[in-house]
């Protein structure tokens, strides 16, 4: 091996060890009986996972998180797909405005957004503070950039304007052009954006804690609360959490790969 290659290989190995040791250690801790005085755990058990998966609080929290994320993303897809289609194809001069608008959540820190939302919705015509609707609303806003970029890029890749023109000249109405030509071709993009948004929301803590907190215990809040009780249990939660996110990212990457292959053909 050339010296240059040795350097590269060792550098990568060090980085990988640095990244993986905490994960491996967390996993080992989550399946250990005791781990104080030895290099490796003294005994192994799955009881922490058993405790976790039989804890109704955990299952409820998981359900709540899935519900909130699912609803926020559903609303986002329903609103964003037609909006981006209409702006891209028929009102292209509004594109920059829309882009600026949906990128705003990137610029606003979670704490600032939460405080602002609580202040706005705790009085006045619409009172939402403390309810899950304020969280769903906030989640809808923070996933806008992911939704916008993903869907907009797929429309650009397929040259949506030309396809719609071709479909209309062949006798299709605007709705038919969208459903029969555009939608099937951007579906992969929509799924990728959806999964990306889902993994972002799944790990979101600041807004969940500040906007609903104890009223509506989501996964993240549950995790923080149980942390103080038992390290083993917390490790089991973290590992479960990682596996879920890992699976989600895997699906996103696979879909992203297949869609980029199609785009380059």
């Amino acid at each position: 091996m050339k010296p240059n290659k040795v350097f590269h290989a060792s550098l990568i190995t060090i980085v990988m060890i640095y990244l993986f040791i905490p994960l491996v250690a967390t996993f080992l801790y989550s399946i250990s009986t005791d781990w104080y005085r030895t290099i490796l755990p003294e005994g192994y058990t799955l009881s922490w996972y058993k405790e976790l998966f039989t804890d109704p609080r955990f299952l409820d929290a998981m359900q709540r998180t899935l519900f909130v994320c699912f609803l926020a993303i559903c609303i986002s897809v329903t609103v964003m797909v037609p909006t981006i289609f209409i702006v891209t194809v028929y009102f292209s001069r509004w594109e920059r405005t829309l882009q600026g608008l949906v990128m705003l959540p990137y610029a606003i820190p979670g704490v600032v957004a939460a405080v602002g939302l609580i202040k706005l919705y705790s009085s006045g015509p619409i009172v939402l503070s403390g309810s899950i609707w304020i969280l769903i609303g906030a989640y809808f806003v923070i996933v806008l950039p992911y939704m916008y970029q993903g869907i907009r890029n797929s429309m650009r890749t397929i040259d949506a304007i030309k396809l719609v023109e071709a479909a209309e000249l062949l006798g299709a109405s605007r709705m038919q052009a969208f459903w029969k030509v555009i939608f099937p071709n951007i579906l992969t993009g929509i799924i990728v954006s959806t999964l990306l948004s889902f993994s972002t929301l799944f790990g979101e803590f600041v807004l969940a804690n500040l906007l609903v907190g104890g009223h509506y215990e989501t996964m993240q809040i549950y995790l923080i609360r149980r942390m103080s009780e038992s390290g083993h249990l917390t490790s089991a939660i973290v590992v479960t959490y990682f596996i879920l996110l890992f699976a989600l990212s895997g699906i996103v990457m696979r879909l992203g790969k297949s869609s980029s292959k199609e785009g380059s053909r």
Binding site: I158, D159, K162, L163, E165, A166, A167, E168, L169, L170, G171, A172, S173, K180, V181, P184, N185, E262
Partner: peptide, 27 residues
Amino acid sequence: PKAREVGMVFQSYALFPNMNVYGNICF
């Protein structure tokens, strides 16, 4: 456009990627 009864071939072809040749032609 749909009421004009004109056919158009674009420079970029604008074929529908989700449909095969037969599907494109009978669209």
